[in-house]
Design a protein around this nucleic acid. Structure first.
Length: 143
DNA sequence: ACACTCGGGATCGTCC
DNA sequence: CGGACGATCCCGAGTG
C-alpha cells in the first residue's frame, strides 16, 4: 500500500488551481473509501486480489502456486482447486457455495480487461505485467 | 465412453 | 430509475 502522504503530495501537485483544503478533503474522502471497507469486511476485494493473496501464502501451495518458468503465471491443483473457490465465495459472503467452474468464469472475464490471461496449459493463467506490478506494490511482503 | 476443462450468454448485486 | 461494472449461474462444446 502506497503511503497516504505520498499519494496526497502527488495529488496536490497536479491540482494547483483548486484550493488546498478542497483538494485535501476530496483526496481523503476517496482514500478512506478505498481503504476501509475493503480490508475490514472484504466487500470491495476483487477476485485477482484474493488470488494474489493465496499465491503469496505458503499454506495455500497445495491449492494454487506460481509456475516458476514465467513471471505472473500460476496454476491450480486439480485436486484442491475447489478449496480456493470455496474460500473465495466465503470471503465474498455468497449464499451459494463457489466452485472452480464459476470462479474460472470470472478469471476468463479478466482477459477482456487485460488483467489476467489464460495460457494454453490446463488450469493455468497469467497476470498481466501491469496487474502484477500493482499487486506487488500493494503487498509489501516478499519478492 | 467418461470426467474434467474451457467458453460464453444470461443474469445478478452493488455502486454512482 | 438506469447504466456501468464485476461476479455468479448454467449449459454446451472441447479434449485427453
Amino acid at each position: 500500500m502506497v503511503p497516504c502522504s505520498q499519494l496526497a503530495l502527488n495529488y496536490l501537485s497536479s491540482q494547483e488551481t483548486q484550493s488546498d483544503l478542497e483538494v485535501i478533503l476530496e483526496f481523503l474522502e476517496e482514500y478512506y473509501r478505498q481503504n476501509t471497507a475493503e480490508n475490514a469486511t472484504g466487500r470491495k476485494v476483487r477476485l485477482f486480489h484474493f488470488l494474489f493473496e493465496m499465491l503469496e501464502d505458503p499454506n495455500m501451495a497445495h491449492c494454487v502456486s506460481w509456475v516458476p518458468t514465467a513471471t505472473g503465471v500460476f496454476h491450480f491443483s486439480s485436486r484442491n482447486k475447489d478449496q480456493v473457490a470455496a474460500l473465495w465465495g466465503q470471503r465474498k459472503g455468497n449464499k451459494r457455495p463457489m466452485t472452480y467452474q464459476k470462479m474460472s468464469r470470472a478469471l476468463r472475464n479478466y482477459a477482456r480487461s487485460g488483467e489476467i490471461f489464460k495460457v494454453k496449459k490446463k488450469l493455468t493463467y497469467q497476470f498481466s505485467q501491469d496487474t502484477l506490478r500493482s499487486l506487488q506494490r500493494c503487498h509489501p511482503g516478499n519478492l
